[in-house]
């Protein structure tokens, strides 16, 4: 998730500062090692936009569907990530900046929630481990 936040910042720069068309922006970021596990989705999306006559939102969804199995995210996370593609490329620079900022905020919320869940789950599993250990000791006695 934190990688995706970096990707979105990079995308904002490619689109709103450099004025690169989407397919080119996706290709540039996808080729960069900083994109990490998001690289495949970005490259696929760029290729679909460049070669097929379909909407950007649809291209983004297709690229996600193709690659999401290899990434450890919840279905609810994918829904949020998919939605942001709908507005990409359809308006002027100012509006695109807002779209990307909003998407980044949403991703940051998801990331925070994921950290909290991981923290809670961590505590839970630790406690369960202790209790299980205690139960085993009691049984042995």
């Amino acid at each position: 998730m934190s990688k995706l936040t970096e990707v979105l910042l990079n995308l904002r720069n490619q689109m709103c500062r450099l004025g690169n068309p989407l397919f080119f922006a996706f290709e540039n970021i996808g080729k960069d090692t900083l994109a990490g596990e998001w690289s495949a989705i970005l490259l696929d999306c760029g290729e679909i936009i460049n070669n097929q006559q379909i909407d950007t939102g649809e291209a983004w969804r297709l690229a996600i569907d193709k690659n999401k199995e290899s990434m450890p995210l919840e279905e609810s996370d994918w829904t949020v990530i998919s939605e942001f593609g709908e507005m990409l490329g359809k308006s002027d620079i100012q509006n695109q900046e807002s779209v990307l900022d909003l998407a980044r905020e949403n991703i940051e919320i998801l990331e925070r929630e994921a950290r909290e869940t991981a923290k809670i789950n961590g505590k839970l599993y630790r406690n369960m481990g202790v209790l299980s250990g205690a139960a085993v000791v009691i049984l042995l006695l």
Binding site: M15, C16, G19, N20, P21, L22, F23, I49, N50, Q53, D55, T56, A59, L88, G89, K90, S91, D92, I93, N95, Q96
Partner: peptide, 16 residues
């Protein structure tokens, strides 16, 4: 609408 997006290569901001 579709034609406009296609000639803008789905990147209206890049052609503003």
């Amino acid at each position: 609408e579709s034609l406009f997006l296609l000639i803008c290569e789905h990147s209206v901001y890049a052609f503003q």
